[in-house]
Amino acid sequence: MSPKLKNGIALALLPQILLVKWLAGHPDWVEKYYSEGIYPLISRFLRMLFGWIPFSFGDLLYTALAIMAIRYLYLHWKSILKKPLLFLRNVFTVFSIVYFAFHLLWGLNYYRIPIEEKLGITTDYTPAALEAISDKLVQRANSLHMQITKDSTQSVSVPYSTGEIYNKTYLGYQQIKKEHPLLEYKTRSLKSSIYSIPLTYMGYGGYLNPFTNEAQVNAKVPLFRLPSISGHEVGHQIGYSAEDATNFIGFLVTSRNEDSYFQYASCTHALAYCLSELSVTDPETFDELYGSLNKGVRKNYQELVSFWQAYQNPFEPIFKSAFNAFLKVNNQEKGIESYNAVVGLLIGYDRKYGF
Rank of each mutant, 00 (worst) to 15 (best):
T123R: 14
K334S: 09
L327R: 04
S189Q: 02
Y111D: 01
L346F: 11
K21I: 15
E36C: 09
G37P: 01
F319V: 12
G58M: 02
W106F: 13
A64C: 14
D282E: 06
G8L: 14
T153L: 10
E184H: 10
E316M: 15
K177P: 00
G163Y: 13
N324L: 04
P54D: 11
Y170M: 03
G8V: 13
R112L: 05
N313W: 02
L327S: 00
I9M: 08
Y33R: 11
A129I: 08
N294K: 14
V138C: 03
P283S: 06
P283L: 00
Y173Q: 07
A310Y: 14
Q175E: 10
S143T: 15
P210V: 05
C267Y: 13
P127C: 03
L41W: 12
L144E: 02
W29F: 14
S143Y: 12
Y240I: 03
R47E: 00
R225A: 12
N218S: 08
N167F: 13
I121L: 01
N313S: 04
P159C: 03
N313D: 00
A66W: 12
F355Y: 07
H180P: 13
Y74C: 14
Q154R: 15
E288Q: 15
V158D: 10
L293N: 01
K78Q: 14
H76T: 14
I347V: 05
Q154H: 13
P159G: 06
Q175V: 11
D28W: 12
N90P: 05
S152I: 09
Q263T: 06
G163E: 12
V253T: 08
L49W: 13
L108H: 05
G58I: 04
G235W: 06
L105C: 08
L275T: 01
F95R: 08
V329P: 03
Y39L: 06
A265L: 06
A132Q: 14
A265P: 06
A265E: 07
E131D: 13
L226N: 03
Y166W: 06
Q302R: 11
N257C: 05
I80P: 09
H103A: 04
F248D: 05
F262W: 00
G206H: 09
E288N: 15
N331C: 04
Y240L: 09
S260A: 15
L81Y: 14
S35A: 11
S292Y: 07
F251Q: 05
A325F: 09
S276A: 13
A132P: 10
S134L: 02
L271M: 08
Y204A: 07
L190A: 07
E284C: 07
G296K: 01
Q147E: 15
P40S: 04
Y261G: 04
H269Q: 15
G120R: 07
D350F: 00
S338K: 04
K178G: 13
V217M: 04
L199E: 07
F100R: 03
P181C: 06
S292P: 09
E316K: 14
N247R: 08
S338E: 12
Y207I: 04
Y349I: 07
E31F: 08
L199P: 06
S143E: 13
S157N: 11
I347D: 07
N247S: 09
L183S: 02
F315I: 10
G344W: 08
G203H: 01
S230I: 05
I229A: 04
F262V: 01
N313H: 09
Q332E: 11
S230E: 15
H26P: 09
E164W: 11
H26S: 12
D259A: 06
G51D: 09
S134N: 01
S230G: 11
A132N: 15
L41H: 14
